[in-house]
Simulated assay, not measured.
Amino acid sequence: MKFDVPLVSGRLIKRYKRFMADVTLDAFEEVVTAHCANSGSMMGLTREGIRVWLTPSDNPKRKLKYSWELLEIDGAMVGINTSRPNGLVEEALRDGRIPELAGFDNLRREVKYGKNSRIDILLEDRDLQKTYVEVKNVTLARGDMGLAEFPDAVTTRGAKHLSELADMVREGHQAAMVFLVQRNDCDAVAIARDIDKAYGAAFDAALEAGVQVYALGCEISSEEIIPNRPIKLAF
């Protein structure tokens, strides 16, 4: 995925109210407020002074001109915009980068299913076999070098999605969880059970029910994000 417009670089001042971040732009030495499309805690990623990249918009109807896309911390490039992962995983699926999920004839996004939910990606083949694919953006890394973890905050919604994936398997369909690791310094992913025990239990139950789990890493630069690196599962 190439960014539609050139990104603007700057330095983070602070993230606040979850969805807002103040940034000093490099080019103009101007302080702007950017939209932060990430509902997680962003643990370890909001250090004052880190380099960040923003997408500018010329839409006059937008309240905030900039959206926070990337950051660099301790030499690692990290993608934090959670509106991107579904499209990145779709790109990977269409390019056959997850071989176990290849061979579909139709791909749809945001399809209603379960208990008032929407599946991120629904794959269908000619025999009407359905595979429900849930995508999670992974940005947390702490302690062991090279190990990414999910979630970075308690996620009741995430546990609910795992339960619904298990329900789809019991109904005779296939279901898969794809962890998209948007860090270029990690080669494995694990569940952060100390952060959310309920999510860990729901994950174990989903595995036992037959939900498939895959992880994909990304090459990240200020020009593009390419979901193409195999990531080990450390469960």
Rank of each mutant, 00 (worst) to 15 (best):
F3A: 11
D4I: 00
V5Q: 14
S9Q: 15
K14P: 05
R18L: 13
F19Q: 10
T24G: 00
V31G: 03
V32M: 08
A37V: 10
N38L: 06
S41W: 01
M42W: 06
M42P: 01
G44K: 02
R47S: 06
R47C: 01
I50S: 04
I50F: 03
R51W: 00
W53G: 01
D58F: 08
P60M: 09
P60C: 07
K61D: 10
R62T: 09
K63P: 00
I73G: 00
A76G: 00
A76S: 02
I80R: 07
T82S: 12
R84S: 07
P85R: 05
N86C: 04
L88C: 09
V89N: 03
E91A: 11
E91D: 13
G96Y: 11
G96M: 10
R97E: 07
I98V: 14
P99E: 11
E100G: 11
L101V: 08
N106H: 09
N106D: 13
L107Y: 02
L107M: 13
R109V: 04
V111Y: 08
V111E: 15
K112A: 15
K112T: 12
N116H: 09
I119P: 00
D120Q: 03
I121L: 15
E124W: 01
R126S: 13
Q129Y: 04
K130M: 12
E134V: 02
K136P: 04
K136I: 03
N137P: 00
N137E: 05
R142K: 15
D144T: 07
F150N: 05
D152S: 14
V154R: 11
V154M: 06
T155R: 10
K160Y: 10
D167A: 14
G172P: 09
Q174K: 15
M177G: 03
F179A: 10
L180C: 08
L180A: 06
N184D: 15
D187K: 12
A188R: 15
V189H: 08
R193T: 14
R193W: 11
K197R: 14
A198G: 02
Y199M: 13
Y199K: 07
G200E: 03
G200Y: 02
G200F: 04
A206P: 02
G210K: 07
V213L: 11
V213M: 05
Y214L: 05
G217D: 12
S222Q: 10
E224Y: 11
I226S: 14
R229H: 06
R229T: 05
L233A: 07
A234T: 04
A234Y: 13
